[in-house]
């Protein structure tokens, strides 16, 4: 393992700028993720959260700024081979699952390990079955994505990312397309991964989940990091009035009945 020491972050973003045509989506983002950490990014829709994740794995290229994943300077990568080497190390789970609909669940899990990593077919299948067990879908290996519920598809997508044995996984609003009853089964899978020490970056609208599992939380709005800190600090004592307004709105909608909203500063337990 080339990880040098604990203080060098696994992911480091510095002054990231990205525009689509005239729309400035990212306007100077700084973000650090230590190895083994779970970091959540919250914020209103259209604040550049998904764009940020795509930059980390080279699906989008920022116009300015630096991205480091371990020893790799992502902003300097040019050739396809270099990007492929990066993507072997970085898992990505999408909001819409994006499984391959023409392949069975087992094939979805083995195609990349076999074709991209060159792993033996049998070995990849054994690993895939183990991962399906981990996400509690061992009985679905012959099913096709179209035959599964949203929550099941998303767990297959997580297992597909894990099958590459990545160093870290990026989760892009992975529960936003799910109905409330199936959100829980996906969050449970992610929670177990974090407990095992997998480095995770989550873009999420699940505030309580973010508060519970994160080592750090970033709040973004209009392409900048408004505020970041420990979940306890950010959720209970937000420094910025914008964070406070967002949380009041976000928590007020779905979760008021479960937790009375405490005024900022008065919630330290």
């Amino acid at each position: 393992m080339p990880s040098n020491d604990s203080c060098a972050p696994l992911i480091a973003l510095r002054d990231l700028h990205l525009s689509f045509a005239d729309t400035r989506v990212l306007r100077g983002i700084d973000l650090d993720v230590q190895r083994g950490q779970a970091v959540s990014i919250i914020g209103p829709s259209g604040s550049g959260k998904s764009t940020l994740l795509r930059c980390i794995t080279g699906l989008l290229r920022p116009q300015r700024g630096q991205i480091r994943v371990g020893d790799t300077a992502v902003h300097e990568l040019r050739s396809d081979a270099e990007f492929i080497a990066l993507r072997k190390r970085v898992g990505f789970v999408f909001q819409q699952y994006n499984l391959f609909p023409h392949l069975s669940v087992l094939e979805n899990l083995t195609i990349a390990p076999c074709k991209v990593l060159g792993r033996e077919r049998r070995e990849a299948q054994d690993e895939a079955r183990r991962l399906l067990g981990k996400v509690r879908l061992e009985h679905k290996e012959h099913a096709y994505p179209g035959e599964l519920s949203g929550g099941q598809q998303q767990r297959v997508a997580i297992a597909r990312a894990l099958a590459m044995r990545p160093e870290l996984i990026l989760f892009d609003e992975v529960t936003s397309a799910l109905d409330p009853e199936t959100v829980g089964e996906v969050l449970r899978t992610i929670r177990e991964l974090i407990e095992e020490g997998m480095t995770c970056v989550l873009v999420t609208h699940e505030m309580r989940f973010a508060e519970e599992i994160s080592d750090a939380v970033y709040f973004t709005e209009h392409g900048v990091i408004v505020e970041h800190g420990s979940p306890r600090q950010l959720f209970n004592e937000p420094r910025s009035p914008r964070t406070r307004a967002f949380l009041q709105h976000a928590l007020g909608r779905g979760e008021r009945e479960r937790r009375p909203l405490v005024p900022a500063g008065a919630a330290a337990r």
Partner: peptide, 27 residues
């Protein structure tokens, strides 16, 4: 073929050729 399906293949480290033959053309 949905763009996001191809993006998923890219994120898994597929080369352009693999993406074409394994995902895009079969669909």
């Amino acid at each position: 073929v949905p763009q996001v399906t191809l993006e998923a293949a890219t994120s898994l480290g597929f080369s352009r050729r693999q993406r074409l033959w394994r995902v895009e053309l079969p669909l």
